[in-house]
Amino acid sequence: MNDFVLQTFQLTKYYHKTPALDHLNLCVPKGCVYGLLGRNGSGKTTAIKLILGLLAPTAGRAEVVGHPSDNLPPSLRSRIGYITEGHHLERWMTIRELEHFQKAFYPDQWDRRFFAEMLDYFELSPKRKIKTLSNGQRAQVNLALTLAANPELLIMDDPTLGLDAAVCRQFLEGMVHLIQKEGRTILFSSHILSDVERVADRIAVIDKGVLRADCTLEEFRMQIRKYLFEFPQPNIPVDTLPGLIHSKQNQQMLEATVVKTPEEAIYEWARRHQAAVEPVPMSIEDQFIEFTGPKQAQKLFSWEMPV
């Protein structure tokens, strides 16, 4: 028996001939807030649906609390909360009706007071119909519905997608409320770094279906660095720079992003090519974009072209 609530083993999914997820190996420990990061279409939703057994894998397998995902028993499902991407709820129902519907599935776990408090906090009347709510309000209802069922494992698929900054913050505060309850595990996907930065203990970065990083946020921060080089001549041997993932070049200047490369190796490379070097500060957003951006991208968009 291990302490992983959720594990995937070489999990692979193809849609016809297109790979959506390629040999994903994930381990989510108990009590962890795990951020699944990736750009649009990177395979985050596919991974989550495979974990929940809503999709069948092409190869590999996923396990939730030791049970294979393709056959999760109802008793285990009652311990899992799931917030779908886009917060698609039954539009004809009122919030009250939706509460009764949800409560029927979790009669022993349902926290009625908490649900009422959440609605108060979000200033939502239970009489309102789902179809009259904005996207942000639907997200709030969805979060309240899911958290009031007291799930041990909460899986959220891009929950802050399309929400404005204020609602997004409220949503994340709701999440923090759950985190404070002992032993709860959260897996959530996002493409917004600031969301992840605020709550995640650990992150996994998926790019084009491939797991590119699985580490703590601090490790991720430390591993990706950007440097500005100034060379005496215009012919710059960029390809020899160790750990290069992204570069921009303009005559004698080179802006390069490297991953998992010790600082000494960079300075040594610069010294060998008689270049002056200085580190460029990066926000975590920049780090993520460059890490998941096209490799060795040197082609500029038309609006980036030097005049």
């Binding site: 929940l52 109802p74 499902r77 779908t84 698609h88 039954e90 979790y106």
Partner: peptide
Amino acid sequence: FTRTWAFLLHRNIT
């Protein structure tokens, strides 16, 4: 069409 299958089917029901 309304994308509510996942909302229904992830529940503790076969």
